[in-house]
């Protein structure tokens, strides 16, 4: 049995959050879900997740801003990050990568393969 990976998950849409939780929880992931960037920033100091999974378009604080604020926390500077977004044009993906994201999962995603997709991104980047 693989090690259970803890994910800090930020998504403002409750239904998508529910789907993602269902899709990942039986697949060796433990999710700490946040409904906003603000909530993630509040929770982050007490967490040491294996992965941060971020929506891009969110009210108030968007995904990229949330990420740059999380990166200011010393214990999260190297935590792998994956964005989940409908904006997946090549230049947009480049921007996410420039923001130290390991990869991007396009929306709408396939819930049945989501766990595998995340693992593939983590493995491709050398299992950081």
């Amino acid at each position: 049995m693989k090690k259970v990976l803890q994910i800090l998950y930020v998504e403002d849409e409750p239904d998508i959050r529910a789907v993602t939780e269902l899709a990942l929880e039986d697949e060796g992931f433990e999710l700490i879900s946040c409904a906003s960037g603000r909530e993630a920033l509040d929770k982050a100091p007490g967490l040491k997740p294996d992965l941060i999974l971020l929506d891009v378009m969110m009210p108030d604080i968007d995904g990229p801003t949330t990420l740059s604020k999380l990166r200011e926390l010393p214990h999260l500077t190297d935590t792998p990050v994956i964005f989940m977004t409908a904006k997946v044009q090549a230049s947009e993906v480049e921007q996410y990568k420039a923001m130290t994201a390991l990869g991007v999962i396009g929306k709408p995603f396939d819930a049945m393969t989501l766990a595998g997709d995340i693992r593939a991104i983590l493995e491709r980047s050398g299992g950081r």
Binding site: D15, L22, A23, K87, K107, P108, D110, M112
Partner: peptide, 19 residues
Amino acid sequence: HELRTPLTSIRGALSLVMG
């Protein structure tokens, strides 16, 4: 983009149930 948001939930939920 607005359409995609609910669609993501619907598709995800159905896929999980079916899977």
